Computed example of a mutant assay.
Amino acid sequence: MHNLETATLKLGVFRPFDSLGQALVAAALHRQHEVSALVEDLNSLRARPGLRCKLGGLASSLEVSEAVMGLDVIFAMLGDQPPRQLPPQCGALIDGALRAGVPRLFLVGHWQWLVAPQDAADEQLGAGLARSLEVSGLDWTLVEAPTLVEGLRIDDFSRAAAPVDVASQQALACAEALLDEVRLGLHRRQCLRLRDPGR
């Protein structure tokens, strides 16, 4: 039963397959949000109460906009993507969110090359993305993906059997921190590094 005192948000998560993505889905469902897993293969993730699987890729802004229409917040889990693939994917996310009218965008990946370029190649690679973010008008947040144990799944974060192992606790703590960012409206148009869990 839904707690009427809890504000319900419609969240979309692109590529929710790593441990943080799975923890984010589990934590959002626990908070009674509506969650859409935006995937390129509908058989890649099992639907469950409160979670719907919807086709969605990052190939174009049109594909993104069709996937995110009606959502309040988008999370894109990009931690496994090489830097050179990030600008076009992020461009599709930015333009798709604008087209669909989704105001809040979290890009979760590795951004050191963008925030502190080491050479001219990094600087050139990041210039267009930084400009697109700044002029978009979206409330975006770049999140530096934390180092977590891989292979965790939604069921590992079940409240019926609260996570007791350190790896699950760390992933869940990061996911809860991201949802708190949404609730409190923090770090808009900024880069965010989650505190290393376990320290």
Score class of each variant (00 low, 15 high):
179 L>P: 02
105 L>C: 04
178 L>V: 04
138 L>D: 01
117 P>L: 07
178 L>W: 01
179 L>T: 06
181 E>W: 12
129 L>Y: 01
136 S>L: 03
169 Q>K: 10
119 D>P: 05
102 V>P: 00
132 S>E: 10
165 D>H: 09
165 D>R: 12
183 R>D: 15
145 A>H: 14
163 P>I: 04
170 Q>R: 10
110 H>R: 15
134 E>G: 07
135 V>H: 12
163 P>G: 06
126 G>E: 04
182 V>H: 02
129 L>H: 03
110 H>I: 09
136 S>G: 05
103 P>L: 04
179 L>V: 08
105 L>Y: 01
169 Q>C: 05
139 D>E: 15
143 V>R: 00
138 L>Q: 02
181 E>I: 09
146 P>V: 05
154 I>L: 14
142 L>H: 00
167 A>Q: 06
111 W>S: 00
179 L>D: 07
119 D>S: 11
170 Q>K: 08
185 G>I: 09
167 A>F: 03
184 L>P: 02
184 L>W: 10
137 G>D: 06
114 L>A: 05
114 L>H: 01
180 D>Y: 14
110 H>L: 15
104 R>L: 06
145 A>M: 13
102 V>M: 02
173 A>C: 10
136 S>D: 02
120 A>M: 15
131 R>A: 15
118 Q>V: 08
118 Q>C: 07
122 D>I: 06
164 V>E: 11
108 V>N: 01
181 E>N: 13
112 Q>V: 08
157 F>V: 03
181 E>L: 12
161 A>F: 08
106 F>W: 12
139 D>W: 04
132 S>R: 10
145 A>L: 14
166 V>E: 14
110 H>C: 13
117 P>W: 04
135 V>N: 11
113 W>R: 02
138 L>Y: 04
174 C>W: 01
184 L>N: 10
145 A>G: 06
165 D>M: 08
164 V>T: 11
142 L>Y: 01
126 G>V: 05
164 V>H: 08
131 R>K: 11
180 D>I: 14
103 P>S: 10
121 A>S: 11
183 R>P: 03
184 L>G: 05
156 D>N: 13
107 L>D: 01
151 G>H: 07
141 T>Q: 03
184 L>E: 12
159 R>Y: 07
185 G>L: 08
178 L>D: 01
130 A>E: 12
177 A>W: 03
134 E>N: 11
171 A>H: 00
120 A>G: 09
170 Q>N: 08
146 P>N: 13
138 L>A: 03
184 L>Q: 13
118 Q>E: 14
142 L>Q: 01
146 P>C: 12
122 D>C: 11
126 G>Q: 07
150 E>G: 12
121 A>R: 15
124 Q>M: 14
140 W>L: 03
182 V>W: 00
136 S>M: 02
149 V>T: 15
155 D>P: 06
179 L>Q: 07
172 L>F: 03
142 L>I: 04
131 R>F: 13
157 F>W: 01
109 G>V: 02
115 V>A: 10
118 Q>M: 07
178 L>F: 04
129 L>F: 04
118 Q>G: 15
134 E>F: 13
143 V>F: 03
159 R>H: 09
174 C>F: 00
117 P>G: 05
124 Q>T: 12
182 V>F: 03
180 D>K: 14
154 I>M: 11
131 R>M: 10
140 W>V: 00
186 L>P: 05
140 W>Y: 15
172 L>E: 00
103 P>Q: 09
146 P>I: 12
169 Q>R: 11
167 A>Y: 03
